[in-house]
Design a protein around this nucleic acid. Structure first.
Lengths: 68, 68
DNA sequence: ATGTGACTTTTAGTCCGTA
DNA sequence: TTACGGACTAAAAGTCACA
């Protein structure tokens, strides 16, 4: 499992656990909906600060977001 | 403590614990020396895959590399 | 509500120096 | 051995129309 897929899986899991849509999470993390979608499909290679914003919006730590 | 500084501190700590120079770590992780230096000074915002390569070269997990 | 391709702008990341 | 600058190239960031 590559890191992009791990990140993708964790974001989707946590997002759905919180009952959020991609659009809601996109707003909360100040990321464009389509860009977030790309991350959640494992097609993007986001930077440290972008991932930190997503972790923040999901209410988890960044290391947690990257757990395998 | 922002994430760039946390990453910087952890990389430097782990690198020195292993007795490696920046240049050796740069080679091991296939990253340019000057760029690695910038990361280790907290001035850069590296991508997921670059951080994963560094974690790998240091023999730690990526989440571990990002622990506060 | 999500997936996708094509796109432009910005920044990551490289390579060359100097100190 | 590390820090830093400039110039460059590759890729991320960010947006849009459409399915």
């Amino acid at each position: 499992m590559d890191w992009q897929s791990t990140l993708a899986r964790n974001i989707r899991q946590l997002r759905q656990d919180k009952g959020l849509t991609q659009e809601q999470l996109a707003v909360d993390s100040s990321i464009d909906l389509t860009y977030l979608g790309g991350i959640e499909r494992g097609r993007r290679n986001p930077s440290l600060l972008v991932m930190a914003r997503i972790a923040d919006a999901l209410g988890v730590s960044l290391p947690k977001l990257l757990e395998k």
